[in-house]
Amino acid sequence: MFARALPDRSVLLALGALAAAAVLYLGIGARGDLGFILMFRGSKLLALITVAVAVAVSTVVFQTISNNRILTPSIMGFDALYLLIQTVLVFTLTGVGFAYLDPYSKFALETGLMLAASLLLFGTLLRNSRDLSRMILTGIIFGTLFRSMTSLLNRMIDPSEFSVIQSASFARFNSVNADLTWLAAGITLLVSGWLIRRHRTLDVIALGRETAINLGVNHDREARHLLTLVALLVSVSTALVGPVVFFGLLAAALTYQVAGTWRHVVLLPLSGLIAATILVGAQTLFERVLGFQASVSVVIEALGGLAFLYLILRKASR
């Protein structure tokens, strides 16, 4: 069972699918100055893949820590927390020139706060994970609370401006925060690589807290480290495109179906590839073929929501 079977067939297949989606994304409807278009689309492609990998890997790791396949960081309100932190910073630091900071410093400040806040909040929440539904519900309500506080603060900052609030309510895959793309891609690559290297520890943590401790893994410390990385990945994806609630769940659920294994050495790369294929493929279909505006995220979210209901009902029928 612990034999080395890399590279796994499903991983190779997913890699092929992603490559196909990427070619279509770059190629369809490309006219005029090809070099320019490829550059332009290429950086958007990189952003999409970064978001997808960050969301998928953080979801799989989070589900491993929480020992549950219905939970995702965004269902538990991570994205909403990040947006709230962004808004709080604007609200409190406007006077001292926060708005004029360069994007990197802003991102660093926001992410630093995000790591601290999520450890504090979700570290405590996850520790009482006996009563699972209560924990999930708490997370969801925290998400609602953060979102309401964000829009409250936005109204306080600029009571007449209406669009501010709206832009925070769902992801926009076609208006990526381009300043951060390279930094985000770098962070995602590093974090994912480190996580994949730790795949054996993740396998043990997936067995549950007590079993993991029995097998000599310092579960609480590991969970803290992993939670920090999850928060980092969520910061990356939220900073790039905004909140994505159910996409991670969809990607992770598909990954478990396709992978047919519990080994993180397969699960982690596969989840990233599957998520990226879905996102790039859907973006190609909607933007290039169907000519829709910005609704890809809405459709993906709806699908993810359906996946969530399916998982709950299937669990219930057992």
């Binding site: 612990f2 043990v204 067995l207 007590e210 079993t211 097998l215 893994v217 519990w262």
Partner: peptide, 30 residues
């Protein structure tokens, strides 16, 4: 130590599970 009703998250075979007992010794490389 084995607790009552220890919940096991992932879908494992019996052999997978028992093999994890060797983790402290071989860190997953059996």
């Amino acid at each position: 130590v084995l607790r009552q009703d220890a919940p096991i998250g992932p879908r494992l075979t019996v052999e997978d599970l028992v093999s994890f007992g060797r983790y402290p010794h071989s860190r997953g490389r059996l």
